[in-house]
């Protein structure tokens, strides 16, 4: 090679950059799911919420010219879908996992239906913080472009951990998730707590969707999410229901996904299909190592039907 480029050094840089670019949707959805599951309910429908969020964010940004309005709209749509999930699950004999899957289909279908006219137009996108402006290297500058939403997500992860551990609200949420009977005995309406938690979780997942369509890859089309929403729900268990660990898990997952293209760009391309499943193998391996048959996972809300 000519020598002026980064070469192999570019691989770690691309992986870091990739982690910062790819992980935010995972982060937002897993934070949303974390909140929901802490209250004792599983919402598997966040993939649908993510895609609905992506579509509505793109549409609103295109029509109004303001990407931030788009983000709000995405959150609003997510809030509604979350509230619908919570409301339906509140009815006796209605299974939260099943409703989640149904809402996923509904969300994806509706987004594809309403999103048809949005595939072509170009909408205004979200801006980024240029943390790399001190450097003269354009790859470094690009890697350190951090979207405002992602910055919010990082703050949110720490704030949520604080909220869950140290505030009255967090305690209430955890009581509802650990033992609905105790919560009721204390005079709290468990259904309402779960409604709020699921709706807020939906809001976050919707915002995660807006990142997909308005920042990275920054476009609306039907292949936009390749199951990021589903995977993010899985990451919550991986992260043991801890918001900050959700952040690390999202970053890990994002960087593992960026490894394949980065290696190929310097000419290493053997087994590229296997490289692309590396994040999944890694997640499975870590889960196998850290789980145990003899105790439930630390941090798992006792009321979760899915993890009984």
């Amino acid at each position: 090679m000519e020598g002026e480029a980064l070469g192999l050094l570019g691989v770690p840089l691309a992986v870091i950059g990739g982690a910062l670019r790819v992980s935010p949707p995972y982060l937002f959805v897993s934070l949303g799911e974390c909140l929901t599951e802490k209250s004792g309910r599983v919402n598997l429908g966040l993939e649908g919420t993510l895609i609905m969020g992506a579509m509505s964010a793109y549409g609103v940004s295109y029509l109004s010219g303001s990407p931030w309005l788009g983000v709000l709209a995405a959150g609003g749509v997510g809030l509604l879908l979350g509230a619908l999930h919570a409301y339906l699950c509140q009815q006796p004999r209605v299974n939260d996992i099943a409703i989640g899957i149904a809402l996923m289909i509904f969300g994806v279908g509706l987004a594809f239906f309403l999103g048809k006219p949005l595939i072509q137009p170009t909408a205004p996108r979200l801006p980024a913080f240029e943390f790399g402006n001190w450097s003269s290297s354009s790859p470094l500058r690009a890697a350190l472009q951090i979207n405002v939403l992602f910055a919010i997500g990082i703050v949110l992860a720490f704030a949520m951990r604080y909220m869950l551990q140290r505030t009255r609200w967090g305690l209430l949420l955890r009581v509802a998730g650990e033992s609905s009977d105790s919560a009721r005995a204390m005079g709290y309406d468990v259904a309402r707590i779960r409604l709020y938690a699921t709706a807020c979780g939906g809001f976050l997942a919707g915002v995660g969707g807006s990142f997909l369509s308005l920042y990275y890859p920054g476009s609306w089309n039907e292949g936009l999410s390749s199951g990021q929403g589903l995977m993010a729900v899985a990451l919550v268990i991986f992260a043991r229901w801890d918001p900050v660990r959700c952040l690390w898990a999202s970053l890990l997952f994002g960087s593992a996904g960026a490894l394949g293209p980065a290696l190929q760009s310097v000419g290493i391309s053997g087994g590229y299909h296997l490289l692309s499943v590396a994040p999944y193998v890694l997640t499975l391996a870590i889960m196998m190592m850290t789980s145990s048959a003899h105790r439930t996972l630390l941090g798992q809300p006792a009321e979760l039907g899915a993890a009984k």
Binding site: A102, I105, F106, G109, L110, A111, F112, F113
Partner: peptide, 14 residues
Amino acid sequence: PDATVNVLQGILFV
């Protein structure tokens, strides 16, 4: 659009 039946499916399931 082709997604019309997906919408119906979604409604039906919910």
